[in-house]
């Protein structure tokens, strides 16, 4: 019998939240598609947590357990997933659109000679058809799409689908017989310390300070918040010109052009030179004492107030939700 195969990810000895979202969504579709849910776990020493996925809607859990699979290698992982698809006869394969999922899903799709509906924000099934929704043109348009492939592969945007847990349910755990694991890729070095200072161009979150931080010392508040958020510190041209921060942190027309998920701007009015460098940010937050500052009108969310009061409070609040 055909099945919905969900590819899960393990992080810090636990399932990624995105994986639980994907299994839950598969569970919701199981009825409509008339297919049970099989979850695939790949890693080294992963059996322990396997049965738990039953609570999220998996009927069966396949484990691919091998020392070689301890870290992600696209060739190994692809071979495992392809084997699982073939063994289960899965007609639907669901990934999470995480860094790993974005790398792995297209390889699996191409190997199975089929297309991939990536980064979906809605997934539904009617009359055996798989319908999805995804954003195009950086969110300017949303499109409903239909998948017509024999094996339908999708990846789901993390954080969009709810996690549905039904305590007590367990899944049947079966080991997957592993395919030959071969790769031409050799990983020479992995760095996950997070201790490295993030560059503004690479960061998902940037906390930027303007002249309103008053001095180089004022940036301590910016650094505290950035540290809690895992964010990079950014600076306006005026700040860099004043010598408070290095030029490498300058965001704007003549500095770095950035497009993070979240951009928090503190004590800066938002001149066009700055705006030109960060207007592509997905979400902009402003903290400024002047309610008339242009940035207040343009930011998605703003707090009118003294940065030296608001920032410590924000840092504390972020610490609360992170723990």
């Amino acid at each position: 019998m055909s099945t919905i195969l969900v590819i899960t990810e393990i992080q810090n000895n636990d399932y990624k939240k995105a994986s639980l979202e994907a299994v839950s969504q598969a569970g919701k579709l199981a009825g409509a598609l008339g297919q049970p849910v099989t979850a695939l776990i790949i890693g080294a020493g992963v059996q322990a947590k396997s049965a738990q996925l039953g609570e999220y809607g998996a009927t069966t859990v396949l484990t691919a357990d091998d020392a070689k699979l301890a870290n992600y290698n696209p060739d190994y992982y692809k071979a495992v997933v392809v084997k699982a698809v073939q063994e289960t006869g899965a007609a639907t394969v669901i990934f999470s659109a995480t860094t790993q999922g974005n790398d792995l899903a297209p390889r699996v799709a191409a190997t199975l000679q089929t297309s991939l509906a990536a980064d979906c924000i809605a997934l539904d099934a009617t009359g055996g058809k798989l319908l999805a929704e995804r954003s195009l043109f950086a969110g300017k348009v949303f499109a409903k799409i239909e998948l017509a492939a024999p094996v339908r592969i999708v990846s789901l945007r993390p954080g969009v689908f709810p996690v549905i847990q039904q305590s007590g349910k367990t899944a049947t755990v079966k080991p997957l017989s592993l395919p030959a694991l071969e790769s031409k890729l050799v990983v020479k070095q992995v760095s996950k310390t997070g201790g490295d200072k993030l560059d503004v161009t690479d960061a998902d979150i940037i906390v930027t300070g303007g002249r309103g931080m008053r001095s180089a010392d004022g940036f301590k508040h910016i650094e505290d918040l950035a540290g809690k958020l895992g964010a990079a510190v950014g600076a306006t041209r005026a700040v860099v010109d004043s010598g408070w921060r290095p030029h490498s942190e300058q965001v704007g027309q003549t500095g770095k052009v950035v497009s993070p998920k979240l951009y928090i701007m503190c004590g800066a009015s938002g001149s066009i030179q700055h705006w030109a460098g960060m207007s592509g940010s997905k979400c902009i937050v402003a903290i400024n004492k002047d309610p008339e500052a242009p940035i207040i009108k343009r930011a998605d969310y703003s707090i009118v107030g003294d940065v030296f009061e608001v920032l410590p409070a924000l840092t504390a609040e972020v610490a609360k939700i992170k723990s």
Binding site: I296, R298, Y301, S302, I303, V304, G305, E309, V310, E317
Partner: peptide, 14 residues
């Protein structure tokens, strides 16, 4: 896009 939503004044808006 919501655009320009002032959440509140000062630290209590955090």
């Amino acid at each position: 896009r919501s655009g320009g939503k002032v959440v509140g004044q000062g630290a209590e808006a955090v």
